[in-house]
């Protein structure tokens, strides 16, 4: 006795026998891409069209037409000619079409169709995405030009990577820079701290800050150079024990900050550890202090204020010599020095 075919298990080893039924789209719901070039009055009946019509073809018209016609079923048409017709069929019945025509003056009775109109339409089409140059220019507010480095604006010329809140971001050689958002750069305090073991040696932290006013200041907590501007009661940057605090409410006053590690005795240090940069919102950036052992100043981190956004970069540059050499190597050349370690305040 043969088993009931309806209960037979599905055959998965004959995939080529499967076929998918063609889904018929109802004519009224069909979406049509109509690249008509209008300007002409819409004829009542659809003329012989060879326009780039992406609507669904009718059974009758399709064999005779040589046009690219993916349109919805249209009413019966006269014998179409095999020509490229950019005319405006414009049926009276509105259809949700992607209309790239140049504005057929819609019949007064016709409801404006929801269409993508790239033409030079003069007719109102409230539901359409009209990229034309027509309409009333006086009514359109001039678009605000987006700043661009390619046009000479002083902005970032690239899309910077950001910081993911809740997950430390490590700046490495392959990804040496990130940018804080405008909010992260302008709210609260940015805390820069060092995490260095005793094995490194006689490690100290210092920083050079350059303000928008042009003032350049060395920050060294161990020598009581603790505020920028110097001796300010409302400092933009403040040196604390093993770190710095940047008052982000005063970000516009800060142009540049460079943080470096050094040995006050010029001893060679076994560089290791990291700088940790934290925002009040929980964003954290780690900057390694990894270098081969050596003397000098290890410039680890730079912050640059670009239009209110702080751009952080792991510099990883070991500058031989004293603090003066490090200052000159990073463009802080407006300081006057008493000796190689002490600027004139």
């Amino acid at each position: 006795m043969l088993p009931d075919p309806s209960r037979a298990p599905a055959r998965t080893d004959l995939p080529w026998l499967r076929h998918r039924p063609v889904r018929r789209v109802p004519a009224a719901a069909a979406t049509r891409v109509d690249l008509r070039h209008a300007g002409r009055p819409a004829p009542g009946a659809r003329p012989a069209s060879a326009g780039l019509d992406l609507s669904r073809p009718t059974r009758e018209a399709a064999p005779a037409s040589s046009s690219l016609d993916l349109s919805a079923p249209a009413p019966a048409q006269p014998a179409p000619s095999p020509s490229l017709d950019l005319s405006s069929p414009a049926p009276a019945r509105p259809s949700p079409s992607l209309d790239l025509s140049s504005a057929p003056a819609a019949p007064a009775s016709a409801r404006p169709a929801p269409s993508l109109d790239l033409g030079s339409s003069a007719a109102p089409a409230p539901a359409s995405l009209d990229l034309s140059s027509a309409a009333a220019p006086s009514q359109v507010a001039p678009a605000r030009r987006r700043p661009s480095a390619a046009r000479g604006d002083e902005v970032l010329g690239y899309a910077p990577e950001g910081v993911v809140v809740g997950r430390p971001t490590l700046l490495t050689r392959d990804r040496p820079t990130i940018a804080l958002t405008a909010v992260q750069s302008g709210v609260g305090v940015l805390r820069v701290t060092s995490a260095v073991s005793q094995g490194v040696g006689d490690f100290r932290l210092a920083a050079f800050a350059h303000l928008a006013t042009g003032e350049t200041v060395l920050l060294d907590h161990n020598r009581a150079m603790t505020t920028v501007p110097a001796a300010s009661r409302r400092p933009v940057v403040q040196a604390v024990d093993r770190g710095f605090l940047v008052d982000l409410r005063q970000t516009p006053r800060l142009a540049r900050l460079v943080v470096l590690g050094f040995s006050p005795t010029s001893a060679a240090l076994a560089w290791s550890g990291a700088l940790r940069v934290e925002t009040i919102g929980g964003a954290r950036v780690d900057v390694p202090l990894e270098r081969e052992p050596g003397a000098g100043s290890l410039v680890a981190l730079s912050l640059v204020n670009v239009g209110g956004r702080l751009v952080l970069r792991a510099e990883r540059e070991l500058v031989p010599g004293a603090l003066r050499e490090a200052a000159l190597a990073f463009g802080f050349d407006e300081l006057t020095w008493v000796d190689a370690w002490t600027p004139l305040v």
């Binding site: 480095a149 604006d153 002083e154 902005v155 970032l156 010329g157 690239y158 820079t177 350059h210 350049t216 142009a255 540049r256 640059v304 204020n305 670009v306 239009g307 751009v311 970069r313 510099e315 540059e317 000159l328 190597a329 990073f330 463009g331 802080f332 050349d333 407006e334």
Partner: peptide
């Protein structure tokens, strides 16, 4: 090193873009 040493004379955006 050339760019860094002249960072003080460059606009901040130019400095950052040059380093990129």
């Amino acid at each position: 090193r050339y760019v860094n040493a002249r960072a003080g004379g460059l606009p901040p955006a130019a400095l950052v873009n040059a380093r990129m």
